[in-house]
Design a protein around this nucleic acid. Sequence first.
DNA 1: GTTGAGCGTT
Length: 407
Amino acid sequence: MPQFVSVTEDENEESIEIPCEEDGTLLISSLSAQFPGACGLKYRSSSGGMRGVRLANGKVHPPEDGQWGPTTYVVVFPKVDTKRKGDDAVGNPAAKMKRKDSEVTSDLIVLGLPYRSTEDDMKKYFSQFGDLNLIQVKRDPKTGASKGFGFVRFASAESQAKCLSQRHMIDGRWCDVNLPNSNEGVGAQAAMSRKIFVARCTEDMSIDDLRDYFSKFGEVVDVFIPKPFRSFAFVTFQDAHVAQSLCGEDHIIKGNSVHISNAAPKQKDSHAADRRGGGNAYGPPPYDRRSGAWGAHGRNTGHEIGGMDANFNNIGMNVLSSAMLAAAQAVLSGQTAPTAPNSSTSETYENMGPGFGGTRDTRAPQGGYSASWGDSHASTNNTGYGDWSGHTGGYGPWGHQSRGGWN
DNA sequence: GTTGAGCGTT
C-alpha cells in the first residue's frame, strides 16, 4: 500500500493526494503531473511559519522518518511564490504556460535600417513605443559598417504589439519590424524533452553560468557545452514541463541574447537522424548523448515537427532582472570601454533601469573583435548550422512586407 | 566611401 501525500496549490483550496515511492520519497515528476512546473513542497510548521521540504535528485523527502503524516503540503513553483497573481508569470514556467502570445515579448528584427543609423538613432525612434531592453545594429566586425538591420526588444508586450503593427520611418527610410525567424516553429515541439538547446551561446558562458541562470526555472540536472566551442549548449531539467516552457524564448545571459529551443530528442529509431537531416538552421543538430556525437551538420533537409503536442505556443522571452545583472557584468568585463569616435562596433544597449539610461555610451574601441575573427573564420558562422548568405529559399516565407526604398 | 534582401561574430 503506497503512502500518499496531500498536496495543494493554495492552503485554502482542496488538496490532491499524490502517491510516493517505496522509500517514502515523492518524485517531482509525480508532483508535476498534477502541478505542472512544480519544483518542491513546503508546509506549515508547528511554529506557524512555512518550512521547505528537502529536495534531492528530483525527489522530495518526507520531513521526518519517512512519514509525510496528515499534513497538507503546499506546492512550490520556481522563483515566484505559489500565488501567481496578475502578470507575475515571468520566471514561473507553470504560470507562463497559461500566458498567451500577446502577453510575451521577444527580440524583434528591424529590417531596412539606413546604413548610417546607430543604436542611439534606434533608441530615439523606438522609445516612443515604450521602454527598451535591447538595441543592436548589426555591423561588419572589420569595418564597423552597418549591415542595415538590427534588433530591438521592448520591456512590455504592449509596446511590442504596437511596434509590430506598423511600418517605421527611421532616419528617412521605411523600415520593417518583425519577429525574427529564430522564433518560428515555436508551438511545434516534437516531444516533451527535458533537454533544451541553447543557441547563440558565447564562449564566456561556463557550465556554471548556465546552470546558475537556468536553475531559477527549475532543477537543472545537466549542462553540456560541446568542445570545441560551437556557440550552443544543452541544459537538461528534472522536469520536462520546465524545459518545454522555456522553448522558443530569448534570454539574456551575461549580456547576450541566447535562443532556446527543443533539443533533438534521442530516438531509438536509427533512421530518425536521417529524416531530421542536419538540424534546423536555428534548431539543434541531431545529437546522441550516449555516443557524444552529433549528426552531420549543414543545410537542413527538414525539421521534424509532425506529431507534436501543440500546447506550447509561447514566442517570448523572460525579461526578469537579467538586464541589471548584465549591466553590472558589462561594466565589469570592460564592455563599456571609452569611446573611439566613429568606430563603434556592434554593441548592445540594454535597459539597465534607473541610472543606466540613455546617456551611457557603450561603444568600444575598434579592433577587439575583428582581430580574433578575421583569419580563423572564413565563413560567417562557426555554428555548423550552415550559412544563410546566398540562401534564397527553402526556409519558408519570411512574411515581410515590401518596403519602399528611398535612398 | 558603392549596396537594400535578409535573420543576431562578440
